[in-house]
Amino acid sequence: MTDIAPSPDPDLVNALRALSNPMRLQMLQWLRDPELHFPMETAIADPAEVGVCVSHLQAKAGLAQSTVSAYMAELQRAGLVRATRVGKWTHYRRDEQRIADLVTALGRTL
């Protein structure tokens, strides 16, 4: 008799896929403590409340704006970050509750 394992949670798979890219993982780590990693004197919004502007992420990562936007969109689709528009700029911040839920789900799965 063959045991068929249940399929993994698709949300967990999407989150792990998003985190499999080293730069996306690095960006998520930077967003954990934005005051430490990004210049606060040039912020146009509170990084703890609204998030970090994509232009600051771009400058720190040294990547093209389109690449950073694509990376952040992937993290957003995985539910790891939330995006907020401030004027013409997009700001990103971590979704701490979603990250905690995924860590719990990973612990149950493995």
Rank of each mutant, 00 (worst) to 15 (best):
K60S: 00
V81P: 01
G79P: 00
K88I: 12
A83P: 08
Y71F: 12
T90M: 13
W89Y: 14
E74G: 13
T84W: 11
D95R: 11
D101W: 03
A59R: 09
V68Y: 05
L63I: 02
V86M: 14
A78Y: 03
Q97I: 14
M72G: 00
R94D: 04
R85G: 05
V81Q: 03
A78M: 07
R98T: 06
R77I: 08
E74I: 12
Q65C: 05
A64W: 12
Y71D: 13
L63H: 01
L57I: 03
D95N: 13
T90W: 06
G87I: 07
G79M: 01
L63P: 01
H91E: 06
R82F: 08
H91M: 03
W89I: 10
L75S: 05
D95S: 09
V68E: 03
S66V: 09
A83V: 09
M72V: 01
Q97N: 13
A73T: 13
H91Q: 11
V68C: 10
V103A: 12
R85D: 11
R98A: 06
A83K: 15
L102T: 11
A64E: 14
G62N: 01
R93T: 03
A100Q: 07
A61G: 04
V81R: 01
R82S: 12
H91G: 04
D101Y: 02
K88R: 15
R98N: 03
A64L: 15
A73R: 15
V103H: 04
K88T: 09
E74W: 06
G79W: 00
W89P: 08
A70T: 05
L102F: 07
R94S: 08
V81N: 01
S66M: 10
S66K: 09
Q65D: 11
V68R: 07
T67G: 08
G79D: 02
V86K: 15
